[in-house]
């Protein structure tokens, strides 16, 4: 596969949020402000990049039977690094992201990239893959956050917008708004791709939680 394709795949064709429907918890939770969305996106990209690089380097060393625990340790270490860096240099962001910052460690996008890509490919491709997926995730978060911030708070990146500022629609800033905006965007993706993009019910391939969520049916049938 060409490098350019690996890089752009994560942004459009296999966008982690809009197409693969992975990692919904942080997407829905921190997308009330565009600024927080960017912060969360970059922190996740950092962890993704770090874990992809190390897992790709160690792919011939880690025995496949204990690979999941190894990934858990690596990913949570990078998460702790990101958490401490943000706490030290961007304290307001640290407070805004709150519990969702340590929760990057349980983000299925990162597990999915480690399991599907980094554990089978060389370091150069893994870096491109991490950057692609990370940028795709950040852009998706930003798209949702823009809609929610403009409609819900009447501002964009903290700057108040005329008229909208006095006519906010509270629901978009609250929890239900996250579900509604994501649902509408997914419907648009469905419409544009004629149902091809989100054909799978829940894209959990490679996520260690797959057995307990999307793939449950298959496992049930197997027993």
């Amino acid at each position: 596969m060409k490098s350019k394709e690996i890089l752009t795949r994560g942004i459009v064709k296999e966008n982690p949020v809009f197409v693969l429907i992975l990692g919904l918890c942080p997407v829905l939770a921190v997308s009330t402000q565009a600024e927080n969305a960017i912060g969360m996106g970059l922190a996740t990209t950092f962890v993704l990049l770090g874990s992809n690089i190390v897992i790709s380097l160690l792919r011939n060393v880690i025995p496949s039977r204990i690979r999941i625990p190894c990934y858990i340790v690596l990913i949570s270490s990078f998460t702790a690094l990101a958490k401490m860096a943000i706490e030290a240099y961007a304290y307001p962001l640290y407070q805004a992201l709150g519990i969702f910052l340590p929760l990057i460690a349980t983000n299925c996008i990162i597990f999915a990239r480690a399991e599907i890509f980094a554990s089978r490919n060389n370091i150069k491709d893994s870096v491109l893959d991490a950057v692609g997926s990370g940028v795709g995730f950040t852009l998706a978060l930003l798209a949702i956050a823009t809609i929610r911030e403009v409609l819900g708070s009447g501002s964009f990146f903290g700057f108040a917008l005329p008229w909208l500022e006095d006519n906010t629609t509270m629901i978009f800033a609250l929890a239900p708004g996250g579900f509604i905006v994501l649902a509408c965007i997914l419907a648009v993706v469905n419409y544009v791709s004629k149902g091809q993009a989100t054909k799978r019910q829940l894209g959990c391939d490679g996520c260690p939680s797959a057995m307990s969520c999307g793939k449950l049916k298959e496992i049930n049938d197997g027993i």
Partner: peptide, 23 residues
């Protein structure tokens, strides 16, 4: 539901309504 909303989108909309109820 409308064709585009079938599957995950309509599930999310139901979740939104349930979430509203919890308010």
């Amino acid at each position: 539901p409308p064709e585009a909303f079938k599957g995950i989108p309509i599930t999310l909309i139901s979740a939104a309504i349930l979430s509203l109820a919890f308010f």
